[in-house]
């Protein structure tokens, strides 16, 4: 999952224009990798997988050779893939924020509607909460307590979603820098 999202994230970063692998790593670290900088090997392996799947192509090679000198560009298939990934809500679960955050920032970077992403997620969260609430109403005390735990976590997520939605404009400013 996490690796999938690294692929999507790098793809998304490429949407703004062809980049060298090293540039990609730097851009990723700068925007998303505050506490976990990307290892260069990760970039290389991810890019080769994307290349294999036809989501990126090599735009040019700098003189001097070596994979690190390759310049990558996103393909149409790649763009569609990013699109689909952004539009798909994550399965509501705890500690989702990093993925969601990545999605929102990428959407802002690629001038997509970040609010949509948040709303979609919010809807998905609420759907989950409805299911839990329903289960809780019909279940015994143990069910109720378990459901409540999940509900409170989901509620916290949802609040984060709301807060982020309210701060999208500010975030866009920061990201654009």
């Amino acid at each position: 999952m996490l690796r999938m999202s690294i692929g999507h994230t790098l793809l998304g970063l490429l949407e703004s224009g062809p980049r060298h692998g090293y540039d990609l790593k730097r851009a990723f670290d700068e925007k998303f990798g505050q506490d976990r900088p990307l290892h260069y090997g990760q970039v290389y392996s991810t890019m080769s997988r994307l290349l294999k799947n036809g989501l990126v192509e090599v735009d040019g090679i700098e003189p001097g050779g070596g994979p690190e000198r390759k310049r990558y560009a996103i393909t149409d298939a790649g763009i569609t893939d990013v699109e689909r990934w952004l539009a798909t809500p994550e399965k509501p679960e705890p500690y989702l924020q990093s993925t969601l955050y990545t999605k929102v920032v990428l959407a802002l970077l690629t001038r997509r509607d970040a609010a949509d992403i948040l709303d979609t997620q919010r809807s998905e969260h609420l759907r989950m909460m409805r299911i839990l609430t329903d289960r809780k109403r019909k279940g015994d005390l143990a069910d109720q307590l378990i459901c409540d735990h999940a509900l409170f976590h989901l509620e916290a997520d949802l609040r984060w979603l709301e807060l982020t939605a309210a701060r999208l404009d500010k975030l866009a400013e920061v990201v654009a820098k």
Partner: peptide, 14 residues
């Protein structure tokens, strides 16, 4: 404004 209250609904409008 509470999600857990809204979870009693069938549908939501924001």
């Amino acid at each position: 404004h509470e999600a857990r209250v809204a979870a009693y609904s069938d549908r939501e409008i924001v």
